[in-house]
């Protein structure tokens, strides 16, 4: 009786250690899975192609993938950071609503241009249109 108890006790002790490891690996696997599915779910809804850029970043010809909402501006915290002096820290927001793209100027100093025309507040953007922010020009593509 005492031996069985001892054996049981040891198996519980070993089981505890094993379970902690199983939990660790399960958690890690779960994290990896969620990151992978995030990647497929968050596939680009559109692309901005850099047409003109005075500096090295963003590079001319670079393709920036878009999500549903994209903050654009000079600050590094933006989804699309444009380190150009003529751009405001938080310059504009480009977002997709009901399959349509809209750009909104966030009160930037030098304004936002769509196809060379300065926008008032919000403006519809179609594929092929050119958006100018500071000295950088970007074309919306599928």
């Amino acid at each position: 009786m005492e031996i069985t108890f001892g054996v049981l006790l040891w198996s519980v002790r070993i089981a505890f250690l094993l379970l902690v490891y199983v939990f660790l690996f399960r958690s890690f696997a779960s994290l990896q899975r969620s990151l992978a599915s995030e990647r497929t779910q968050a596939r680009a809804l559109g692309t901005l192609v850099v047409e003109r850029s005075p500096a090295k970043t963003p590079r001319v010809g670079e393709r920036l993938s878009l999500r549903a909402t994209n903050a654009i501006g000079r600050d590094a915290g933006n989804d699309i950071a444009i380190p150009d002096e003529a751009a405001s820290a938080r310059h504009a927001v480009l977002e997709q609503r009901d399959e349509e793209w809209w750009i909104e100027d966030l009160g930037s100093t030098n304004g936002t241009l769509v196809n060379g025309v300065k926008i008032e507040k919000r403006e519809r953007v179609r594929f092929g249109d050119e958006i100018a922010i500071g000295r950088v020009a970007l074309r919306l593509e599928r």
Binding site: V12, F16, L19, V20, V22, F23, R26
Partner: peptide, 15 residues
């Protein structure tokens, strides 16, 4: 994952 937490808590306390 919580199922594994339950198992850990249980074996830990029993041990």
């Amino acid at each position: 994952l919580l199922v594994w937490v339950a198992a850990i808590a249980l074996t830990g306390f029993v041990a």
